[in-house]
Every structure is written in structure tokens, then in C-alpha cells.
């Protein structure tokens, strides 16, 4: 059963006198529990597609059903509610609130959902534990490494128990080892039934996805299912190689 169902979506921007056709009629259906990598050069329309999937933007025309609900015509308030309830976001530059503890950062979506004190605390702490940061609840972003910050961001995306996690270049600011670590985390999410969609331009990151969609000039160029590589295995290999390199 598709959780994301996009039909003939067109997005046109008006920049001065020039009309920019970011999406020219895209149809895409993603099933629950899939791990989709969306690839494409800059200006291909992949970010626009991601924004529409993420309910941050509305299509000029076309239909978008998310978790069985038509969302293309919703107003700003309803879209905010959908984002809060159904979606989780992970960004390239982490976008954590500075001078705010990891716990409070993760609590934020629950705060907007109106979940109170203890329950909010408990769920945020559990989400941080799930990404392996149980001991760093009160660390602020500047006390954490890039990989740890991204894991806080993933915990923030998870805490609301979303159906879909959207990640925009989540490894763009990370080295290859932490990138694989983060991808292992995404694969773990997928194994628990969460749908993951991530935008990337790195082919070796896309390898960890079960499906690769390539966007070009506002249209889908290719859409292939694949057997994903295991990030866990890749991580072990990298660690072994690093240990060997260290020994030599």
C-alpha cells in the first residue's frame, strides 16, 4: 500500500518575468517501509520534489496523497499539523537550536504537539537512546561532533513516531565513516517499518537505499529498485580497515 502517492505534480515558480518549471508533471508512488534515495544534479527539481513530499510546499497542479489523505490543497496550519504528526525531517546542516540541550532539541516536536512534561521528557530520552546518545542528554550542539549532532537531529525526527522520515543530504557535512554510521541508523529505522526518503548526490550513499529515483529537468529520469548494501557491514569493514591502517 503506497504511503506517498504523487500524481502529475507540476510546480512552477515565478521569478520576476521568468517562469521556472521546477517540476513538469511528476508521478511517484512510495510504499510503506521503502527506503528511497532521490538523486539528481542541482537544479534538477529534486529539492522541489522533496519540499512537496515534506508538505513544506504546495504543488501548482497535481495530486498528493500522504498516508491516505489528500494534502495538496491544505492551508499552512493544516500542513504544519501534517508535518508534526506524519513526517520527520533531517537536514544537511543538522539545524539544531544552538545553546539548547540535546534533550530539549528532541522535545521540540512534542512541545508543538502539546505533549506535557514527564511524557515529553521520557519520549525524548528514549529517542536519544535509540540513536545511541543516551549519555549526552544535556549536551548542547557545540559540545557534540557532527555525527552526534546529526544523530540528535534524527532523534528529533523520530520522537513523534512519524510514518515517513525525510532527509535532505543528511551526510553532506559528514566524513565517510560517520556518513555510513548515519546510513546504518536510517536502515535500522526502515527495518522498524518507517518509510525513509533521502535526497543525495553521492552514488555510494544511494547504494544503501532499496530504490533510487533520479530526477532531471523536472521529470523522473529513472526509478530502479535494488538490493541495498548493508550499512552495518560497510561500517564493520571501514572500522577494520581503519584498525589495520592504524596498525601498519
Amino acid at each position: 500500500m503506497p504511503i506517498i502517492e504523487i500524481t502529475d505534480v507540476v510546480k512552477t515558480y515565478q521569478t520576476g518575468d521568468v517562469e521556472v518549471h521546477a517540476l513538469r508533471g511528476v508521478s511517484l508512488s512510495i510504499d510503506e517501509g521503502e527506503f528511497v534515495a532521490i538523486m539528481g544534479a542541482s537544479g534538477s527539481g529534486k529539492s522541489t520534489l522533496m519540499n512537496i513530499i515534506g508538505c513544506l510546499d504546495r504543488p501548482t497542479s497535481g495530486a498528493y496523497r500522504l498516508a491516505g489523505r489528500e494534502v495538496s490543497g491544505l492551508n499552512r496550519d493544516d500542513l504544519a499539523e501534517v508535518r508534526n504528526q506524519v513526517l520527520g525531517f533531517v537536514f544537511q546542516n543538522f539545524n539544531l537550536l544552538s545553546r539548547t540541550s540535546a534533550l530539549e532539541n528532541v522535545e521540540l516536536p512534542l512541545l508543538y504537539r502539546g505533549i506535557h512534561g514527564k511524557e515529553r521528557h521520557r519520549r525524548a530520552a528514549a529517542a536519544l537512546e535509540r540513536v545511541g546518545l543516551a549519555g549526552r542528554l544535556d549536551h548542547t550542539p557545540n559540545q557534540l561532533s557532527g555525527g552526534q549532532q546529526q544523530r540528535v537531529a534524527i532523534a528529533r525526527a523520530l520522537v513523534g513516531e512519524p510514518k515517513v522520515v525525510l532527509a535532505d543530504e543528511p551526510t553532506g557535512n559528514l566524513d565517510s565513516l560517520t556518513s555510513v554510521e548515519v546510513m546504518a541508523l536510517f536502515q535500522e529505522l526502515q527495518s522498524t517499518g518507517i518509510t525513509v526518503a533521502l535526497v543525495t548526490h553521492e552514488p555510494d550513499i544511494a547504494e544503501f537505499a532499496s530504490r533510487v529515483v533520479v530526477v532531471k529537468d523536472g521529470l523522473i529520469l529513472s526509478d530502479d529498485r535494488q538490493t541495498p548494501s548493508s550499512a552495518r557491514v560497510a561500517l564493520d569493514e571501514l572500522l577494520a580497515a581503519k584498525a589495520a591502517g592504524g596498525a601498519a
Partner: peptide
């Protein structure tokens, strides 16, 4: 601005 963007992305309504 970025903080406001993040808050909106994770579900803050314009009113909040």
C-alpha cells in the same frame, strides 16, 4: 530565520 524554519518544519503553525 533558520530556527523559525526548523520550528515550522517540525510542526509549528504560523500562529505559534
Amino acid at each position: 530565520t533558520r530556527e523559525i524554519g526548523v520550528r515550522m518544519a517540525i510542526g509549528a503553525k504560523p500562529r505559534s
